[in-house]
Simulated assay, not measured.
Amino acid sequence: MKNLLPKNWQQPKLANVDTDGKWLMPPIVDLCGRLREPGHQSYGTLASEGRAARQNGILHIVLPPDTNPVLENGSLFKGLREKAYQDGSVYLHILGALTAGLKGEQPANLAGLKQGGAIGVTNARAGFDDDMVMLRTLEYAATCGLKVFFYPDEPSLSRSGVAHDGYIASFHGLAGIPWLAETIALSKQLLMVEETGIVAHFGQITCRTSVELIRWAKAKGLPITCDVAMHQLHLTDDDLEGYNTNAFVYPPLRSKTDQRALIAGLQDGTIDAICSHHEPLSSSAKQAPFGECVAGISNFDTFVSLGCQLVADGILTAEQLVEKICTNPAKIAGIKDYETIGGAVLIDPDLSWQVDKNTMLSSGKNTPFMGEKLTGKVVEIFF
């Protein structure tokens, strides 16, 4: 057995457990998982997605505020966290809305969000009314000592697109989303981080130039971290071939050049973490033509297998994988009781399984890996 638990971590009792060839690691911390409750229970619930997460080794989940209603009332957070644990046995870490209603027009009650236990604030993928609103709101967040989570996107460049702006989109007649939509927004946000002094995290970066900008900003000493979604490390826009709606996700799958840059950034520490970007959907949500259906990939069930593949391919060591999906995300999310809660996950990195509707625990079966054989699976959880 390869013991990947941090020093001083409480060791689980492994009597009568087959540990031969397996990895023992801390619980996974997911920096972005949409559980569809409140507001979209036809796609999933705290119960269904919580159970899927937990059985796949994911005990801690960061929830963005773009639910229905928007998460902008800090007094409601305690009840939501309690319900997530009661229904799904997972620990929810909530991001509050940076602006009222995520409309980008005026700041939300950031002081109230902090008092309610928000781990940070974000405007999700919604834009701002203008840059002055963004600047003043970030200054307010700085005075409250709140970390700001950015998901870089310039709506004027991306709003009509459904796929990466490249050959595949052009060949299929799909409206493209240029890489500039991400990097122009990222450049602006980095400058505002420097100006306001906020601590910031950049979620789900997808392209080569974003990696270069993050690398430059870190070298300059800006207080930032970033993550990439697991599927961006395994899929590219080539996987849209045949109008595969299960590969329709936002931000879009990028080119192989972008993917190579993401992998290099993961290896050299520019990219701190890997998130699931779990977005479960009903089968009907993916039945419309490409671009007219709902974007999103269900990722809880495949997350560990795809992580094991990174190790098998020599991209990361098992120890580095633990950093990217466990310890670094816990630090980014500010989970002070991560070690106190403890627990452990036992993974068989050589266990093969087939992805199908019966083996997936999530209510959402919307995955481009449907029907494939993957290797690596959680076999025991100790929580």
Rank of each mutant, 00 (worst) to 15 (best):
L102P: 11
N56V: 02
R36D: 13
V62M: 13
K83L: 11
K331T: 06
K188V: 00
F171C: 04
D239H: 12
V311H: 07
F149S: 13
F128N: 10
D153H: 10
C275K: 11
G291S: 05
F369I: 01
P329S: 11
D131H: 10
Q204H: 15
L24S: 07
I205W: 08
K373C: 13
A52M: 03
Q11T: 00
V228I: 14
E194A: 15
T257A: 14
Q11C: 00
R136C: 10
V193H: 14
S210K: 14
G112S: 09
H234M: 07
E72G: 12
L14M: 09
G88F: 07
L14Q: 05
I274T: 02
G307L: 05
D337H: 15
T143E: 15
M134S: 09
V17D: 00
I332E: 07
K103H: 13
T183R: 10
S156G: 02
C32E: 13
K147N: 12
L59K: 07
N123K: 07
T225W: 09
Q354V: 14
A84G: 10
C207N: 14
L240E: 07
Q259F: 01
K365F: 02
V133A: 15
L46V: 04
L63C: 12
C275W: 05
A100F: 00
R260T: 06
N68E: 15
V29Y: 08
Q267S: 11
R260S: 09
L59Q: 14
M192T: 13
C326P: 11
L233T: 03
A333K: 12
H172Q: 15
A261H: 00
P12A: 10
I205H: 10
T327C: 11
R54D: 04
K7C: 00
A333T: 03
Q204S: 12
T270K: 11
L266Q: 06
A124D: 13
T99W: 04
D337R: 14
G120P: 04
K365A: 02
E279K: 06
H164G: 06
P251Q: 08
A217F: 02
S158W: 01
I274A: 10
F128R: 09
R51V: 15
K114Q: 11
L14V: 07
A84L: 04
P6Y: 06
P289Y: 09
V162S: 08
D350I: 00
M132G: 00
L35G: 07
G161H: 03
T359M: 04
I381E: 08
Y243W: 13
I297R: 07
S283C: 02
H234S: 01
L80H: 06
P223C: 02
A330S: 09
P26R: 01
T143L: 15
I184K: 08
D301S: 10
L310N: 08
F382W: 04
R81A: 14
K324A: 05
L71M: 10
W216I: 00
A217S: 04
P368K: 02
D356T: 03
F369H: 08
Q86H: 13
N8D: 12
L316H: 08
P27Y: 01
D238S: 15
S305Q: 03
F382R: 06
